[in-house]
Amino acid sequence: MSPVLRTRRDGSTRPARYRAVQPLAVLWLTLVWLAMWGEVSPLLVVGGVLVAVAVCVAFPLPPVDIASGLRPVALARLVARFLVDVVRASIQVTGVVLRRRPVRNAVVAVDLESSSDFVMTLVAAMLSLIPGSVVVEARRSTHTLYLHVLDVPDEESAEEFRRDALQLEQRVLRALPPHAPEEAGA
């Protein structure tokens, strides 16, 4: 999310302050704490909450408002397609590694449609996890990702990869629909 500006009464603007301790983050960090202990007891839960609050205060992050606009069906489709892609592309990369012919690559620019930093981060992370592509550069000002793609024999396949990446972005947008601008600034 780009920094949200607030207007003071005298007309000057300043970046909005975020509340450091967010319930979802505390819940998540407590779960991580419990998973690392490998058991659940009242003392561990209290300790986990204390550690989580301390971490949130020490390393504050801007809130990411995911839960409000989540679409479960689209999200399930996104995750399922992602897992299929990971398996398929792993097999593909295995083939590239084991065959004899030298590999040809490409650096492809993908101009994302959405202007949200959160969507850009998600798309970049998912593209990186799907074998065959690494993000070498991300430009926030134009929301462009530059990806190094493995095994691109010609320009046609580069175009194909760009289409695939944009389709992935569409699936992310369907699963996590962006907020209306006035909502984000409220």
């Binding site: 690559n105 490409a106 492809v108 550069e137 530059y146 320009e155």
Partner: peptide
């Protein structure tokens, strides 16, 4: 020499 397309260096 291994790159078919390089859209980053151009820019």
């Amino acid at each position: 020499d291994l790159l078919v397309v390089d859209e980053l260096s151009d820019e």
